[in-house]
Amino acid sequence: MELLAVQLQQEAHCTISDLAAQFGVSARTIARDLSLMRDQGMLIDADRGRGGGVRLDSNWGVGRMNLSYSEAVDLLISIAVAERMNSPMFLANLGSVRRQLVASFSPEKRNRVNRLNSRILIGVTASTYVQASVASPPARVVQTLHRAFVDQERLDITYRREDGQTSRRSIDPHYLLLKYPVWYVVAFDHLRQEPRTFRCDRLLAATGTDTPFRLRPKAEFGASLVGDDLLV
């Protein structure tokens, strides 16, 4: 029924016969699904008469978006970054959106979000030299880093240094640091047995290990956390 709801939202006018043909089912099945959708509270309009169409009210779905924990966290981070950039455009409602998102969490998840937010830091804007060399890391690397950061799991990476040399590292991603527009991961490096900072766009590969780690005291990371204004 989700696909049917999406189709009804996208199309201004659909007939039951058209929908039946599109989804490869009978018109009776479509009619039954529409009835079930109405029972679930969806606002479905129908035109009377032969050839009449059905449509989902354009306002349906506002306030009904279901986000997973990780998706909600991503949205909160994006809102916080936008607020921190202090742009006067399009920020009027971000504070309200953020408060509603946080309020929708259970107390336990709210605490998790607060702890996670304390590990996402804002530093000074990157120099023009650094900005000139920044690139987008592979999507798969970003996703793996994101999961390891949120779940506090050790990460195996292949990293390219500024001189072009590559190395394999095993890191615990403690903090993410934004020096706009460049993201860094501040981690405990098991190869060097000390904290190190890695530019996210120089991560060539990343593999999760499913090995959890405990957060080390913030004081251990010292100069790596320069400019550590909290996002939220």
Rank of each mutant, 00 (worst) to 15 (best):
M1I: 01
E2L: 12
L3D: 05
L3A: 09
A5N: 01
E11N: 15
H13C: 04
H13A: 10
C14L: 14
C14F: 00
A21G: 12
A21H: 08
R32I: 01
D33F: 04
R38W: 07
R38T: 05
M42Y: 15
L43N: 13
A46K: 15
A46C: 07
G49C: 08
R50S: 09
G51H: 14
L56P: 04
S58K: 15
G61L: 09
M65V: 08
E71V: 01
A72Y: 02
L75R: 14
A80W: 07
A80I: 00
A82F: 08
E83M: 15
F90W: 10
F90K: 12
S96Y: 08
V97K: 00
F105Y: 15
E108T: 07
K109M: 12
N114D: 14
N114H: 13
N114W: 09
N114Q: 14
L116W: 11
L116G: 07
N117P: 06
N117R: 12
I122G: 06
I122T: 02
G123R: 06
V124E: 15
A126M: 00
T128L: 15
V130W: 09
A135P: 02
R140N: 14
V142E: 13
L145T: 04
H146C: 09
R147Y: 10
F149V: 00
E153C: 14
D156M: 11
R160K: 14
R161F: 08
D163A: 10
D163F: 13
D163I: 06
R169G: 07
R169H: 07
Y175M: 02
V185W: 07
V185E: 03
L191S: 09
Q193G: 08
E194T: 04
P195Q: 02
T197I: 11
C200G: 02
D201K: 13
L203H: 00
P212L: 12
L215F: 02
K218Q: 10
E220V: 05
E220S: 03
F221K: 02
A223N: 10
G227L: 11
D228G: 07
D229S: 09
V232I: 11
